[in-house]
């Protein structure tokens, strides 16, 4: 038996919005410690890994490990039927070919139930090696989204260059070129606007904007995004999954990490 309840169903909606264009089908692995998902896009250029901690749920029970393969586009459709303030419960019985989704409205007298068919997916799991990254940039998620969107007007790829003075995002195309430079800054009043750069050695790497623009669909999950880079390894774009409660308290319940293979000169 598997049962997981989130008090703020909107978090699940945001997670699905963040991944369902990149991957259409994937398997959730459920264990006593939480739920996780790993999947590559169809061209195998990027990989998304979602992790939700069991203790981030208001109720979490997983008697034995389960793999719930499903069509994420369909799951997303069903989650659209839940109100943003609904409590959402996911239930799966051992050996069943479907999961149940239960939405409880805040008024406490309206309950909706949906079922979604499970699929047997031949998932390929990749081992992600422990890496210590040369450069880590923590910046406002909305700023990163804006930069990727703007530079995609200029070209298909962005070169991220990091030096002592800051980080540069630049693109070149038929019409010309463009760049956005950010230097480290911190504000006591608005920590969500901070740009934090940690660098061991200067670095410059190029990535396809098509994928980065897909990753920024996770922007509503968290005010800050972390980019981790090292020469000749995939870029990591990480968003924490933050549940905002009624009292405005923020609770980190997991993360989404996107890995993007670089473009490398022949």
């Amino acid at each position: 038996m598997f049962e997981a309840k989130l008090d703020r169903g909107i978090v699940l909606k945001k997670i699905l919005d963040a991944i369902n264009q990149l991957v259409n089908e994937a398997s959730w692995e459920c264990t006593s410690s939480g739920m996780s998902l790993q999947a590559m896009d169809t061209s195998h250029v990027s990989l998304v890994a979602v992790n939700l901690n069991g203790d981030g749920f208001s109720k979490f029970r997983c008697d034995r490990n389960m793999v719930l393969g499903m069509n994420l586009v369909n799951l997303s459709k069903i989650l659209k039927c839940a109100g943003n303030d609904d409590k959402v419960t996911i239930k799966a019985a051992d050996g069943d070919d479907k999961i149940k989704l239960i939405f409880e409205a805040p008024n406490e007298y309206e309950v909706s139930q949906y079922e979604i068919k499970l699929m047997n997916l031949d998932a390929e799991y990749l081992g992600i090696p422990e890496t210590s990254y040369n450069v880590t940039v923590k910046m406002p998620a909305a700023k990163f989204q804006r930069i990727c969107r703007d530079l995609n007007q200029i070209g298909d790829a962005v070169t991220i260059s990091c030096t002592k003075s800051g980080v540069d995002f630049s693109a070149t195309g038929d019409l010309g070129n463009g760049s956005v430079s950010l230097s480290q800054n911190s504000s006591f009043d608005k920590p969500e606007d901070n740009v934090t750069i940690s660098m061991q050695e200067p670095l410059s790497q190029t990535f396809a904007l098509k994928y980065l623009n897909q990753f920024t669909k996770a922007t509503p999950l968290c005010s800050q995004v972390t980019l981790s880079l090292s020469p000749d390894v995939p870029l990591v774009v990480e968003y924490k999954i933050i549940e905002e409660n009624e009292e405005d308290s923020k609770n980190e319940i997991g993360h989404i990490r996107y890995y993007l293979a670089p473009k490398i000169d022949d």
Binding site: S46, L47, P129, A261, I264, D265
Partner: peptide, 14 residues
């Protein structure tokens, strides 16, 4: 000319 690598060039299948 830069070439797009795939993720499986870096991460091995389990």
């Amino acid at each position: 000319m830069s070439k797009q690598k795939t993720i499986t060039n870096f991460f091995k299948r389990k």
